[in-house]
């Protein structure tokens, strides 16, 4: 049986909908973890069923809560608008079309001191999510374990250097996917790890030759 019992009886969440409330909160929280900088404003572009049914399922409250760093089982989720106001964070919603095979999609744009940064993703149902685009970087990120996303020049040795750094720091790799736009051009790897990735390791990864950018999502699995 490859279905986890804890996924059948779960998630523990704030109602009313695992896809429209819990999934929305988780997606926005993951986006927040990816961006990981202060911001004054956040915009939510809603696609598919999110756009048509978000009001009835508190999707809007859930998204704002997630962007503020709250989890899908945080009992303050319903007060996220007030909390955002108190913190001086502006937010708005607009309908949009996000090319995706999934029904519930959102584009979350943070407005920070260094400009705009967006994360796109989908709520898959049952509280599961998939991040599909990080500020232009197309990816598939389920955010169920700590994940490193490295963008690099497609040259020999980069992947090896990256995995060596992780191994030296005692971080075990669970799943690693490497892809590229075309040979010798830009490539990236999505590395799902078993352990949280500390700040010094992130810095080390950034210093590897031919690495263009490093994004870390330190989300904990159950």
């Amino acid at each position: 049986m490859n279905i986890s019992l804890l996924d059948v009886v779960g998630p523990v969440m704030i109602g009313p909908s695992s896809s429209h409330t819990a999934g929305a909160a988780k997606l926005a929280k993951t986006a927040r973890l990816i961006y990981d900088k202060p911001f004054k404003k956040v915009s939510f572009g809603l696609g598919g069923s999110f756009a048509s049914t978000y009001r009835g399922h508190f999707t809007d409250f859930a998204l704002v809560a997630g962007a503020l760093g709250m989890s899908e089982d945080d009992e303050n989720l319903g007060h996220s608008f007030e909390i955002a106001n108190e913190k001086g964070v502006e937010f708005d919603f607009y309908p949009t079309e996000i090319p995706s095979v999934y029904e519930n999609t959102a584009r979350i744009t943070f407005y920070g001191e260094d400009g705009e940064f967006f994360v796109e993703g989908a709520s898959l149902g049952g509280g599961r999510i998939l991040v599909t685009n990080i500020n232009g970087l197309v990816c598939e990120l389920t955010a169920t374990s700590p994940t490193v996303i490295v963008q690099q020049q497609d040259v020999k040795g980069v992947v090896s250097d990256v995995s060596t750094i992780l191994a030296f720091n005692n971080i075990n790799i669970g799943v690693m996917k490497v892809s590229r736009t075309s040979r010798g051009d830009k490539a990236f790897c999505v590395i799902e790890c078993d352990d949280i990735i500390p700040e010094n390791v992130i810095d080390e990864l950034r210093q590897v030759n031919n690495v263009l950018s490093v994004v870390v999502v330190n989300i904990k699995g159950e």
Binding site: V12, M13, G15, P16, A22, E75, L77, G126
Partner: peptide, 18 residues
């Protein structure tokens, strides 16, 4: 009732049938 009022529940198997 708790689910529909943004209270904490455990989906089993879903929130609607919790």
């Amino acid at each position: 009732e708790v689910n529909a009022s943004m209270g904490k529940i455990c989906a089993s198997p879903t929130a609607g049938s919790c």
